[in-house]
Amino acid sequence: MTVPASRVRRRPRTPGRLLPLLLATVLLLPVAFLVIQGHRFVDADRDALEREQLGVEYLRALGPVTEALVNAQSAAVTRRPLPRETLDRAVEQAAAVDARIGDELRTSERWAGIRAKLEALPERSLTDPEAAFAAYGEVTDLLLALYSKVRQTSGLIRDPDVDSYFLQDGVGEEMPEALIAAGRLTDLAILIERRSAADQGRSLMELATLRFAALQPARDLVNNLRAVVESSANAQLGASVLNPFDAYQRAVETMALLALPNQSGRVDTARLTGARNQAQQAAKQLQPVLLDEIDRLLADRIDRLDRDALLVLGAGGLAALLLIVLAVSGWLPRPQDDSTVADQSSVEAEPVGSDRPTGDRWEPATLRPASDQTPALQPAGPGREPDRWRPFDAAR
Results as ranks from 00 to 15, higher is better:
Tyr165His: 05
Ser164Lys: 01
Ser164Asp: 10
Ser148Glu: 02
Gln168Arg: 13
Ser164Val: 09
Arg184Glu: 11
Glu173Lys: 07
Arg151Leu: 07
Met175Ser: 04
Gly172Trp: 01
Arg158Asn: 12
Glu173Thr: 15
Gly172Asn: 07
Ala181Pro: 04
Asp161Asn: 15
Asp159Ser: 14
Gly183Pro: 06
Tyr165Arg: 11
Pro160Val: 10
Ala182Lys: 09
Val150Ala: 08
Val171Ser: 07
Gly172His: 07
Val162Cys: 12
Arg184Ser: 14
Gly170Arg: 09
Val150Arg: 02
Arg184Asp: 06
Gly155Ile: 02
Gly183Asn: 11
Ala182Gln: 08
Glu173Arg: 14
Arg151Phe: 05
Ser148Ile: 01
Gly155Leu: 09
Ala181Ser: 15
Val150Gln: 09
Pro160Leu: 12
Tyr165Gly: 03
Tyr147Ser: 01
Gln168Asn: 12
Gly172Pro: 13
Leu167Arg: 13
Leu179Gly: 05
Arg184Pro: 09
Tyr165Pro: 01
Asp163Ser: 12
Ser154Trp: 10
Thr153Pro: 02
Glu174Gln: 15
Ile180Val: 15
Met175Asp: 04
Leu156Arg: 04
Ile157Phe: 04
Glu177Lys: 15
Glu173Gln: 15
Thr153Met: 08
Asp163Ala: 14
Val162Pro: 05
Asp169Arg: 15
Ser164Gly: 02
Glu173Ala: 14
Ala178Phe: 14
Thr153Cys: 01
Gln168Leu: 03
Gly155Val: 01
Tyr147Met: 03
Asp163Lys: 06
Glu174Trp: 08
Ser164Thr: 13
Gln152Gly: 04
Ala182Arg: 08
Gly183Lys: 14
Asp161Leu: 06
Ser154Val: 11
Val162Asp: 08
Thr153Leu: 03
Asp169Asn: 13
Met175Gln: 06
Ala182Val: 03
Gln152Val: 11
Arg158Lys: 10
Asp169Pro: 00
Leu156His: 04
Ile157Gln: 12
Glu174Met: 13
